Simulated scan of single mutants.
Amino acid sequence: MIIVTTPNIEGKTVKKYHGIVNGEGLIGANVYKDIFSGVRDVVGGRTSTYEEEIQKEREKALEAMKQKAIDLGANAILNVRINYSNLGGTMGNTILISVNGTAVSY
């Protein structure tokens, strides 16, 4: 499966468009992580716990999107976009990671 952020793949011609596919992931951050993260940000540290969780959830969302494309008979996903949204307040934030693209066959 080829997954790209571009609208086409050089040298290839789309034979069939299968439609839009998507995947999502949610990260629920607990109060202790939020407090620790805030302290590290103040002293200039990196919040590696969040970075790791975001990376894991992004990969899950991409995998879910890929599986939907495979189920449609596609062998590539074009024009992939990854979006991050904060769904919560200052304590107990929830981060939504959504990915989408166009499933195609070459």
Results as ranks from 00 to 15, higher is better:
25 G>Q: 06
10 E>L: 09
22 N>H: 03
26 L>S: 05
37 S>I: 04
106 Y>F: 14
75 N>W: 09
57 E>V: 05
44 G>L: 14
99 V>L: 07
14 V>T: 00
44 G>V: 07
74 A>Y: 01
25 G>D: 00
83 N>G: 07
85 S>N: 04
55 Q>E: 12
24 E>C: 01
57 E>A: 14
105 S>F: 00
34 D>R: 15
76 A>Q: 05
70 I>D: 01
48 S>Q: 11
16 K>D: 07
45 G>R: 13
40 R>D: 06
31 V>M: 11
43 V>S: 02
103 A>H: 04
45 G>L: 11
87 L>H: 00
37 S>N: 07
66 K>V: 03
16 K>S: 11
10 E>S: 09
40 R>P: 05
62 L>E: 09
45 G>N: 03
68 K>C: 02
80 V>A: 13
19 G>R: 06
52 E>W: 06
89 G>R: 15
100 N>Y: 09
25 G>S: 13
79 N>H: 04
81 R>G: 10
104 V>F: 09
37 S>G: 14
4 V>K: 04
75 N>A: 07
55 Q>T: 11
48 S>P: 00
13 T>P: 06
32 Y>Q: 14
105 S>Y: 08
2 I>H: 12
71 D>E: 15
23 G>L: 08
55 Q>S: 02
75 N>P: 07
22 N>T: 08
50 Y>H: 05
97 I>S: 10
59 E>V: 01
95 I>K: 09
11 G>N: 09
66 K>P: 10
55 Q>A: 11
95 I>N: 12
84 Y>S: 12
16 K>P: 04
32 Y>R: 15
49 T>S: 13
69 A>D: 01
20 I>K: 10
29 A>H: 00
76 A>S: 13
80 V>R: 13
78 L>M: 00
12 K>A: 07
4 V>M: 01
83 N>L: 11
6 T>K: 08
37 S>R: 11
59 E>C: 02
106 Y>T: 15
23 G>N: 08
27 I>D: 03
63 E>S: 10
57 E>Y: 10
53 E>W: 13
6 T>H: 03
